[in-house]
């Protein structure tokens, strides 16, 4: 039953690959523009200095990390409603890309925090710590995926975990914010007044990363689908090959 399902999507997956191919030139242009914006167009930050130029790619990744994890939860709901394996491919692809972005956010955040706040890991900052918990949740999601054989059960369990993980995010955020306000605050949150040119640079970096996310999502979903089809066909041949 599920095999027909996967193979029905094959013609459509060609379309996605085509679209991701069309997106590539835009992606190149946008990334170059974002680099230009971050390094040349945006002014030097007065207090933090040159290091602040990490910020544009940092925020671009952060925004897409949330987008990716929202897509995991949404695809989970859609899977549970429609029971269509396609949505599991989307969730798997999105979780993986989300972890890539989250890793970038954590690493750049840490490198940024060291010279500015003189600490590699500002535990008291709710953004950093929430991102870390997010990262842990979605790595757990991938571990759950890899420890189950393909099949309806895996798709159901992963959908449930994806939904619960996403629902947890606002609660984690709240709890860490309260934790921080109670403990002595080492880190005053920066932000607030960004120069207009910095906002412009941000307005290029964020869409650039969003296009990157979409391209990767289309590509990875198609790959998951093709893998599923190859797996099913192999199995079918093996089964019918037996005398």
């Amino acid at each position: 039953m599920s095999s027909t399902n996967n193979q029905d999507f094959l013609p459509r997956s060609q379309k996605w690959l085509q679209i991701s191919g069309w997106l590539l030139p835009f992606l190149y242009v946008l990334i170059v523009a974002a680099l230009y914006g971050a390094f040349l167009y945006a002014p030097r930050e007065r207090v933090m200095g040159e290091v602040q130029r990490i910020f544009y790619f940092h925020l671009g990744s952060a925004w897409n990390c949330f987008l990716a994890f929202f897509a995991v939860a949404l695809a989970g709901v859609l899977y549970l409603v429609t029971r269509n394996e396609f949505w599991d491919h989307v969730a798997a692809a999105s979780a993986e890309i989300g972890i890539v972005f989250a890793t970038i956010v954590l690493a750049t955040g840490s490198i940024w925090a060291r010279p500015i706040w003189n600490t590699w890991w500002p535990w008291g900052d709710p953004r950093v710590t929430t991102m870390l918990v997010l990262w842990l949740i979605y790595v757990a999601y991938l571990i759950l995926r890899s420890s189950l054989p393909d099949g309806e059960k895996k798709f159901k369990l992963c959908a449930v975990f994806g939904i619960i993980g996403f629902l947890d995010v606002p609660i984690v955020w709240m709890s860490i914010r309260w934790w921080r306000t109670i403990h002595p605050v080492v880190i005053a949150s920066s932000g607030g007044g960004l120069a207009p040119k910095m906002v412009h640079a941000l307005m290029i970096a964020v869409p650039a990363f969003t296009v990157l996310y979409l391209t990767a999502l289309l590509l990875r979903t198609a790959m998951h689908l093709h893998q599923g089809v190859a797996r099913e066909l192999n199995q079918a041949v093996l089964e019918r090959g037996r005398p």
């Binding site: 130029r53 970038i104 750049t108 940024w112």
Partner: peptide, 28 residues
Amino acid sequence: MNTYLFAGYVVVWTVLFLYLLFLNKRQR
């Protein structure tokens, strides 16, 4: 100061490149 900026962008590109390698492996 600029070392940190450099390190930050090295990390961004390294992570993205590693993901590309991973995709390539999967594709193969």
